[in-house]
Design a protein around this nucleic acid. Structure first.
Lengths: 362, 362
DNA sequence: CTAGCATGCTAAAACGATTTAGTCCGTCCC
DNA sequence: GGGACGGACTAAATCGTTTTAGCATGCTAG
């Protein structure tokens, strides 16, 4: 439905039906595309082009509403300014939190990202890895995603399950986490503390446990094996669902109480199991924190809304995502450069109402 | 570690450093790129190419590990198979839930998506809209994102704030939602019900309230103005933060109790305000659900973990995202075709422990 | 014997940029 | 007067595909 153009782009633009191309700007000015490109990119080769011409070019681009076509530019320059993100499931809290940080950092630096959720299925993971590569992403960020084959692209892993050559790992500092939680409990006067360990599959389980053992020793606390329970995770698929974790926390809470060995505090593996345990504890007639103190891990949203609200070790997910993205961009900027094998992020302790002095002290 | 190829392209490939191009496959076979392209795309024009040649081509592509370059293809075909998603903040529960559904649907259909979180800032929103357009996304999905200007691309809006020409809106069925919640309460015997209304800015506020008024009339329930409080949302920025909603729920819960007008149930605007109100109610010495029943809205994760767990109207976020993506793909497939102006999604009532018969009936 | 028509391909022009290697023209210098 | 030089550009190749328009060749039919 374009009206005829009277003469050389005169008159009122009838409708910018088609996107304006570099060539159009050039034609409009009676210059070559080369010149326009040089000016628009502030290329060093534009040295030879006098300022007034440069001004003319920019004015025309502005006037015609010229926007470079990113696809064409990507093809020619072999740069897409896009990275791929692989994660189990985007709507799950942990991944979403990390992704928020990734996004902040990437967009700030002019990059976009493509996300694919593999739902912990190996074949989907392989497919998406392939598809992302075909789309020419420049690098990868894996969140909570197991990977055994070495990758053909620069990559950063958040909460990864193993070390891969050349891949940077972003992890929480478990030593600090354990020390924060246990020091807090010890200072309140707790001596007999129960623990939930993580699923054997989880990347964090082993390192966190070692940190707990070390911190306990430091603080002169004894660990009673009868008071340490390992989350199993149930069937694959449900393994990381919050409901599952909650249910297990609930069952384990009851189990702990049944053991008969006295304890005045529980340090859970994560918030959902802590919340499940809290329920079991309350149901048994004990009060939190008067009879039992509970410390969680993660600081999910629900933690603050519990009754009583949950004292917990916060993982700065946003920050972790940010760092992961920053590391990846660093790799992209300085290929073959120096990238740390591990970036350690400091957790913080969020004090709320689920912890207090043990009853024998009160 | 390929064995050396004896002739034709002699020498052992030292390293498959470079990605294999269409041209390489063609050269390897002694055919033209055209032929290879035709075969690989199963183009109708490949009619003329005998099956055995086709087989040869496919075998060679497989052997050399040929993967078409998506960028080049996009440039030539003017199709990117990518859509843009704009939302306030990706790590927030509502958006993340919807995004999960969007992703499922899009990846299934071979599309990818670029996300940008505008943090409710107009200038960021404009910028990202621009950037997405430059990247040649084929369509847009706006989640919870106000938009006044008409868009230059096919678009679908989830929880939109106003009607835009040619844009499909995906919304929850407020009539059904109100009926579900109020019927449940009425059947339990509640007659005096308190309400929280949403922020005046929120898209859902007005339609939901109208639905509540209508359903109340249907059920013969009277609405007491003293028992309806409007969430204000506080300063911009904090406006949609869960903490803010929770705090307001808490304050409003206290306010309701102070009013003196009797009520036996509360239908909150969302789960976080419901949870805040529950806390206020419990703190005042009343018991849930024995003295007061509470119904939330959304079914966020925390709802199930409350003590008591929260009865609530569930918005099927995943489903909403799925439908939004499906509608957008439909528009892309059939441009100018028939797209509904509105897609209505049915909520469900999740019965938990925060509702029960009113005390005077017990 | 030759026009006509399959059959099996291919040449070359896009797509919209970037970039390398010049070209053309006027001055300046000796 | 002629060569060198600098200033202001531009032609053409390229990125890796897709797609349109043909080109040989051989067979068949009239």
């Amino acid at each position: 439905m374009n009206t005829a153009r009277p003469e050389e782009a005169s008159g009122q633009e009838p409708r910018p039906e088609r996107r304006v191309r570099l060539k159009d700007v050039a034609a409009h000015l009676g210059l070559s595309p080369t010149t326009v490109s040089l000016v628009m990119n502030r290329s060093p080769a534009a040295r030879g082009i006098p300022p007034e011409t440069q001004e003319r070019v920019r004015a025309a681009a502005e006037e015609l509403g010229y926007r470079p076509n990113f696809i064409a530019r990507s093809l020619r320059r072999q740069r897409t300014f896009a990275v791929g993100v692989l994660l189990p499931e985007i709507s799950e809290g942990y991944a979403a939190g990390v992704l928020g940080g990734i996004e902040d950092q990437l967009l700030q630096e002019g990059y976009f990202y493509l996300v694919a959720g593999h739902h912990s299925k190996q074949d989907l993971l392989d497919d998406y890895l392939q598809l992302l590569t075909e789309r020419s992403v420049e690098g990868l960020i894996l969140v909570n995603t197991p990977m055994d084959q070495p990758l053909s692209l620069p990559a950063v892993v958040v909460a990864g399950h193993r070390e891969l050559p050349g891949v940077t790992n972003v992890v929480i500092d478990h030593e600090v986490a354990a020390r924060l939680a246990l020091t807090h409990l010890a200072e309140l006067g707790h001596r007999r503390i129960a623990f939930f360990k993580g699923h054997p599959h989880s990347a964090d389980t082993e390192s966190r446990w070692q940190a707990i053992v070390a911190a306990s020793a430091e603080l002169g606390l004894e660990i009673d094996p009868r008071l340490t329970l390992q989350l199993s995770g149930g069937p694959v698929g449900e393994q990381f669902s919050p409901e599952e974790g909650y249910r297990e926390g609930h069952v384990f809470g009851q189990e702990l109480l049944a053991v008969g060995a006295p304890f005045s505090a529980l340090f859970a593996f994560n918030d959902v199991s802590a919340i499940g345990a809290m329920r079991a504890i309350v149901e048994s007639g004990l009060r939190i924190p008067d009879d039992v103190s509970v410390v969680g891990f993660d600081d999910i949203l629900s933690a603050a809304f519990q009754n009583p609200s949950l004292t917990t070790v916060r993982q700065p997910l946003h920050e972790m995502g940010r760092r992961a993205a920053a590391e990846l961009l660093h790799k992209l900027g300085a290929p073959g450069g120096d990238s740390p094998a591990t970036v350690t992020i400091e957790p913080t302790l969020v004090l709320r109402d689920s912890t207090g002095p043990p009853p024998d002290r009160a």
